[in-house]
Nucleic acid binder design. Structure first.
Lengths: 144, 144
DNA sequence: TATTGTTATACTCTATAACTATA
DNA sequence: TATAGTTATAGAGTATAACAATA
């Protein structure tokens, strides 16, 4: 049977929807991140950055900061701890665990930050510096 | 023990990263969508819109259009079919299934489109029309 | 009583590999 | 041989409910 090259689909309404464009942009950024910063997802790096900026933060406060249930954090932190990137230390309020980067965690985060710098440049390659700033500002108005 | 109100965390580097802002914006949009368009996720509505704009599209072409594996589509389409929103019809190439909205599917999609109109207005409530257009354009340059 | 961390459990979304029927 | 749809299976990532320790 003769095969015509499959024309791309009619996208219909989708390109007019902010949510759709956000999803496509996020998927593109995620793919580039995965290729640029091997071994950790954007979400995990985000947590490491928060622990770096807030040493000793409790699990629950970190969970709140990333909009996840505190039970969800347990497994995530177990993994980061098993990889030697963070440690839990019993807090003054002995119900809590304070979270700290280990030496290895600080080293990996330093490497990740350098990779993220290059990643950000690729992601914004088609934007001027002013456009990039404008995009961040418009996104902040979407997310409140 | 005396409890100080937990100050919000120091966000560190995160607010400067396009991927982080995209994620927050997308989560906010997703939440509003879920509250506005009950019963279907953004992804599912996207598929219904593509089937509407491309009646008879095959499963594999739809999978390609939404960047998913064709095996992933099977279960998704099973669900939409079980809900009576779409039907599969054997294609002229008898290996393929053409996808079509049912009458119920068209009706639900019409309702969803009205809900999406209101949803889009809420999402862009802090943006002028020109800013909204600008945002869509900048996002398109991120996602290629 | 209320909160923190934990466990058990389940659900959603996704992919890979192998199968079948058709081409 | 190659492709479309399917199945079995597995892995992320997430949430809810219930529990022990501590406040």
């Amino acid at each position: 049977m003769i095969r015509r090259p499959a024309a791309s689909l009619n996208p219909g309404l989708l390109p007019e929807l902010i949510g759709y464009r956000l999803r496509l942009a996020q998927q593109a950024v995620f793919r580039d991140f995965a290729a640029s910063v091997p071994g950790v997802s954007p979400g995990r790096v985000g947590m490491l950055l928060l622990i770096e900026a807030n040493p000793g933060v409790t699990q629950s406060r970190l969970a709140q900061a990333v909009s996840r249930d505190r039970s969800t954090m347990v497994g995530v932190l177990d993994q980061l701890e098993a990889r030697g990137l963070i440690e839990r230390r019993r807090g003054a309020d002995r119900r809590t665990n304070g979270l700290w980067l280990t030496r290895a965690g600080r080293a990996m985060l330093a490497r990740a930050k350098r990779a993220i710098t290059a990643h950000e440049q690729r992601v914004a390659a088609r934007l001027t510096a002013a456009e990039r700033t404008r995009l961040l500002e418009l996104l902040a108005r979407i997310a409140v």
